[in-house]
């Protein structure tokens, strides 16, 4: 073999560094993709595989970006405004939800310049008190639904669960997909469930609840599956795709979020529709949050860098953001004793 051919072979296999593979062209129109389980399967398995090493390496590289001083201050405020302040415990009480809502509106009572968070995220039965507590503050109420976190219940229950949360005033619904059906290849079932929950999000007057679809990437095993699940959710009508419930380890990771961000980026270039992304679970420090912001900026561009299109599902993260913010404004290290416990 001539050196020339060898060279071409060698370079021909190289993808752009860190890019976990790009969806080039679709052979079938998107409308027909979901016609049957077979066409869905053909489409999802026809998506290019994710370069696992490349994705890991790219996120590791982006994680080393140094964001300091004024840029850091801006990133912290942006991150605070993107937080979905979450409490999803069996021990949640009315009082806890009210306290959390107060914190969502004024994260640091001593400093009115701190922006409010994007939303609070609660179980369906606590939606009504959350809506009441937040009033006209502009903080939205997200409710998990559809048998969260496992999703192991009938479609009727899932739909009714969603309808009740919407009726109680939830602005956003975080549904879980049926991971069992997804992993066994029954994509059509997952698709139908998302579509059914989507229609349950409808509200009279057109003010539909936004649908966030939780992929629970920790149970999907591979990045290829994350990419397939992302596309499946987007095709079925999701407004947002969300990594995890927070109940399964590993929860959100940077590479998984990269794969999902690439999916929404490619989906927009194919269809013109913009889908949001929400990593949730395991994001505890300001450093982590800033890494996600860098990842968004580098993958999808600044279009997604608003609370409307990117959220951080977290609870303890907010206190760390506030502590870092205080460090920047006062010049001394802050302590957790001076912030409310969630």
């Amino acid at each position: 073999m001539s050196p020339d051919v060898l060279l071409r072979l060698w370079f021909g296999t190289i993808r752009p560094v860190g890019d976990a593979g790009v969806v080039s062209t679709l052979t079938t129109p998107l409308a027909e993709v979901a016609a049957t389980n077979a066409t869905l399967r053909a489409f999802l398995h026809g998506l290019p595989g994710v370069d696992r090493v490349g994705a890991d390496q790219r996120t590791a590289m982006l994680g080393t970006r140094s964001i300091k001083t004024t840029a850091k201050a801006q990133a912290i405020d942006l991150a605070i405004s993107m937080v979905d302040l979450t409490t999803l415990e069996g021990a949640d009480t009315l009082g806890k939800v009210r306290a959390m809502c107060a914190k969502a509106v004024r994260p640091d009572p001593a400093d009115p310049s701190v922006p409010k968070v994007a939303a609070v995220c609660v179980y369906p039965d606590l939606v009504a008190p959350a809506v009441e507590a937040l009033g006209r503050s502009g903080v939205r109420v997200a409710s998990v639904a559809t048998g969260f976190p496992s999703g192991r219940t009938s479609l009727e229950v899932k739909v009714r669960d969603t309808e009740l949360a919407v009726a109680a005033g939830a602005h956003e619904i975080d549904m879980v997909i049926d991971r069992g059906a997804f992993l066994s290849g029954d994509y059509r079932k997952v698709f139908d469930e998302i579509a059914a929950v989507r229609s349950a999000c409808a509200r009279d007057g057109g003010d539909d609840a936004h649908l966030k679809v939780i992929l629970e990437t920790g149970e999907l095993a591979t990045y290829d599956n994350v990419r397939r699940a992302s596309w499946l959710a987007m095709l079925a009508g999701a407004d947002f795709i969300k990594t995890s419930t927070g109940k399964v380890a590993p929860a959100a990771t940077l590479p998984v979020t990269l794969v999902m961000l690439e999916a929404v980026r490619d989906f927009r270039s194919q269809t013109g529709r913009m889908i949001g992304v929400k990593p949730a679970g395991g994001i505890r420090t300001t450093k982590d949050a800033i890494k996600y912001l860098v990842l968004v900026n580098e993958t999808t561009g600044p279009d997604w860098l608003t609370p409307e299109w990117f959220r951080l599902g977290a609870s303890s993260l907010l206190n760390d953001l506030l502590m870092q913010r205080q460090k920047l404004t006062t010049g001394r290290y802050a302590g957790p004793d001076y912030f409310t416990l969630d």
Binding site: G331, R332, Y333, A334, G335, P336, D337, Y338
Partner: peptide
Amino acid sequence: PWLASHMDV
């Protein structure tokens, strides 16, 4: 000075 001003000390 950083330790003296640290709020968690």
